[in-house]
Each structure stands twice: as C-alpha cells, then as structure tokens.
Simulated scan of single mutants.
Amino acid sequence: MRYATKQGEPIVMERLEDTEPHNRGWVVHSVDAWIGRSRAGYLKISYIPRENLKALYKHGIWDWLRKIKGRVGMSFGVGTLEFAKQAALGFCSYDTYLKLERGEMPIDEALELLEAVERRHQRSYREFLGWFVDKPVVDFVGVEEEWRRRGIGTALYIEATRWMNERNLRLYGSTCVVPGGGAEETWRALSKAYSVAHHMGHWGRNRVPRRYLELSEALREAA
C-alpha cells in the first residue's frame, strides 16, 4: 500500500518482526516509517501468540505465577513432593512447608491445598489470557518532532493494523494514553476517516473498552 504525508511526501513502511525475543512468551514487532533516508516514526506491537502460550505455559497457572508474578520457582514437575514444598513456601504457611519437609503431611493433602491456590488465582489468570493472548496491542508510537502533524502516526496505525489483520488478529490501541498526547490526536484523525470499534475487556474488577481500527476489505488487501 502506498502512503504519503499530508504534504505528499512518500512514506515507506518497514515491518520488523520479533525485535525483542525471549520475553516470557511475548513477541514485539515494529513498523518503521521512512521518508527518504530518515526514519520519521515507528510503532511497536506486543502480544503473546497462542503457540507461545502452549510452549511456555504448559503448566498453566503455575507457569504464569512463576514467569509473570515471580511467585514460585517451579523447578520440579507439577504434582511432585518437591513442587508442593516450593509452592507451599510461596502460597501456604511456613508451618505447612515444615509438615511437608518432615513428612507429616500426606502429598494428597498438600495437593488439595495447592488446588485451592489455583482456584484463588483462576480469575486473574483468565484475565491475563483474555488480555494478552492473540490480542496485539500498540505498545508505543513515536514520530520525530520534525515530522509531526503530517499524518505519519495515522499511516503507522493503518499499516500495523493491516499487518495484524493479515494474521487474522485485531490491533488494539493502548489503554495507557496520556490525555492531550499525540496518540489521542491520532485516534481522533482515524475515527474521522475510518471505522473505530470497541471490544469490552476485563481487568481486575473493571470492564475496560479496548478500541481497534476496522479497515475495509479493499484497504486491508491493498498492495
């Protein structure tokens, strides 16, 4: 697809995939906007692909607690005595850990306690899955000062949306937007020319609207 500034200067888009590897399952992509030899701006996208979830979160909640919450150093298989000891240190009383260490608590009883831990964190884990897995979000968008107010931010959002749409994914705008900042100005421009839709997400006890750009089929498939 061909892009140009409001002044008619050609914008060349460059897609950079997985620019920050080994990040607990997240992938970070970048779209760079070039005018001549100058990188005028860029947009970062991040999310957890479902295949990464399957590979890196095989133990579900327990891997999430270890990788994201930093709570359990799970170096043993789920369901083993050593795992129960480690998990007890993180989530149960020290007295429970000592009983396990001294062999005074049957493993079945310990695992029942750990099932209670799973139930306690189930809601937060589901929110994590619903918010990040196959839900690309704009992490950051920046335009160099000399190139601002020329439509480059809008072009970056369109190109990034087209890229994610090619993977049958929506690109969600960040919910961390500074009032009066450039991102809000870009979204206002987008809403005047294109369709902006909302999806209600859940975070904590709040329902949070997540907006995304809906492009026409012709625009999605433009060369």
Rank of each mutant, 00 (worst) to 15 (best):
R39C: 15
R39D: 15
R39A: 15
R39E: 15
R39S: 15
A40G: 13
A40Y: 13
A40Q: 12
G41R: 12
Y42R: 14
Y42E: 14
Y42V: 14
Y42Q: 14
Y42P: 13
L43S: 02
L43A: 04
L43F: 06
K44R: 14
K44V: 08
K44H: 15
I45M: 05
I45R: 04
S46Q: 09
S46L: 04
Y47A: 03
Y47T: 03
I48T: 04
I48W: 00
I48C: 02
P49W: 01
P49V: 00
P49D: 05
P49Y: 01
P49F: 00
P49Q: 00
E51H: 15
E51M: 12
E51F: 10
E51Y: 13
N52R: 09
L53K: 06
L53V: 06
L53P: 01
K54P: 02
K54Y: 07
K54F: 08
A55E: 13
A55K: 14
A55M: 06
L56F: 07
L56C: 02
Y57V: 04
Y57L: 07
K58I: 01
K58D: 00
K58V: 04
H59G: 04
H59F: 04
H59Y: 05
G60S: 07
G60D: 07
G60T: 09
G60H: 07
G60Q: 05
I61R: 04
I61P: 01
I61H: 02
W62V: 07
W62L: 07
W62T: 06
W62C: 06
D63A: 10
W64G: 00
L65N: 00
L65M: 05
L65V: 01
L65K: 01
L65T: 00
L65S: 02
R66A: 09
R66E: 08
K67W: 12
K67G: 04
K67Q: 15
K67N: 10
I68L: 00
I68D: 00
I68R: 06
I68S: 03
K69A: 03
K69Q: 02
G70F: 01
G70R: 00
G70H: 01
G70Y: 03
R71L: 10
R71Y: 08
R71G: 08
V72C: 08
V72A: 05
V72I: 12
V72R: 04
G73F: 13
G73H: 14
M74A: 15
S75R: 14
S75V: 12
S75M: 11
S75N: 09
F76R: 09
F76G: 02
G77D: 11
G77R: 08
V78W: 04
V78I: 08
V78E: 07
G79N: 11
G79A: 14
G79H: 14
T80D: 11
T80L: 10
T80Q: 13
T80F: 08
T80W: 10
E82P: 10
F83P: 10
F83H: 11
A84Q: 13
A84N: 11
